[in-house]
């Protein structure tokens, strides 16, 4: 039995969509955590992604720190290490700068929102141009044998019809899902995770419970930064990047977070997944250049029909 080529192509892009979607999902989770807990529009999120990419590149390709793990596992280890390192970076950044315009200190000031926008935009510019000075403008990538190898899955028995699953993306997908699940558990089940959600819901009441809201925000900002950096490290195994790469992703991240429902971690993941699927499925019917246009058509449709996003709550009593 032979399967129509269109049918095969559909499953091929569906798989591609799921793989990319999981990584987009992880990026969105990082941003969604920061936005959900702190209500800060962070323009620098794409640049944290970029830092995760360069971190992985230098640790793995330039210095070969993990070369003992072999060429397959080293990039994954590098990307995972980017998490805690950029967690620390995000924590310090929040302590030194972001906390001046957010949280309890800013609660009394009406214009804090504008200060937040200017500050994160400034951080984004500094990170991008700093990266340009330090890393140079030459596009680069983390080389791994997985990037150009694929699993071939026989499809409906036909010898000629085979589905290709890129190994680098498949591994990145699995790691993304695992980290996303771990974060979901942390936010939902642990005491600190619940305190983060309480601080997000009502920071004043959280203070009355004895929750150090500024510290909770530092933790959330650090985790959000670290998660996005891991996603960056994973993307770097199959995507060429330069210091301005954050821009390619930051719009996708925001679209995913809004699509999933602001403030929902699970929603952010599915929002990112939806964008990955739409982006890949669109290639079936639209030219490559319109991939991202398709994302925003779907985005507008969803927001039109369900303004609160997939997992957002439409209304609640106060």
């Amino acid at each position: 039995m032979s399967v129509g080529p269109l049918f095969l192509a559909f499953f091929q892009v569906l798989i591609a969509g799921l793989l990319v979607g999981a990584i987009y999902g992880l990026m969105c989770v990082g941003l969604g955590l920061i936005f959900g807990v702190m209500r800060v529009i962070n323009f620098a999120q794409g640049d944290f992604l970029m830092l995760g990419m360069y971190f992985t590149f230098y640790v793995v390709s330039a210095f070969g720190v993990f070369s003992f793990l072999g060429p397959q596992a080293a990039p994954i280890a590098g990307a995972l290490l980017a998490g805690p390192v950029l967690f620390a970076g995000g924590w310090i950044l929040h302590r030194l700068l972001i906390s001046r315009v957010t949280g309890t200190r800013a609660a009394a000031e009406r214009e804090a929102g504008q200060a937040q926008l200017i500050l994160t935009l400034g951080i984004a510019l500094i990170l991008e141009n700093g990266a340009l000075i330090v890393f140079g403008s030459t596009p680069t990538a983390v080389h791994t044998p997985l990037s150009w190898s694929a699993w071939m899955i026989p499809f409906f028995g036909g010898a000629s019809s085979v589905l290709f699953v890129n190994k680098a993306r498949a591994v990145a997908c699995v790691v993304s899902v695992l980290i996303g699940a771990a974060l979901y558990w942390f936010i939902g089940r642990t005491r600190l995770g619940k305190a983060l959600r309480a601080a997000a819901d009502n920071s004043e009441a959280a203070l009355y419970m004895g929750i150090d809201v500024d510290r909770a925000h530092s933790v959330a900002f650090g985790i959000g930064t670290g998660i996005t950096a891991i996603a960056g490290g994973l993307v770097a195994t199959y995507y060429t990047f330069q210091p301005y790469v954050g821009f390619d992703f930051v719009i996708i991240m925001y679209a995913g977070v809004v699509l999933g429902g602001l403030g929902s971690i699970l929603g952010a993941f599915w929002g990112g997944m939806t964008i990955g699927l739409v982006q890949q499925l669109a290639t079936l019917v639209l030219p490559m250049q319109l991939q991202n246009a398709a994302i925003f058509v779907v985005f507008l449709l969803v927001v039109q029909l369900r303004p609160q996003g997939f997992f957002g709550r439409s209304a609640e009593r106060v």
Partner: peptide
């Protein structure tokens, strides 16, 4: 000023945060 997106039980757990 309860925490609206937390369950009743989680609200009480947060009460016991101190």
């Amino acid at each position: 000023q309860v925490f609206p997106s937390l369950t009743v039980l989680e609200n009480l757990e947060m009460g016991a945060y101190a």
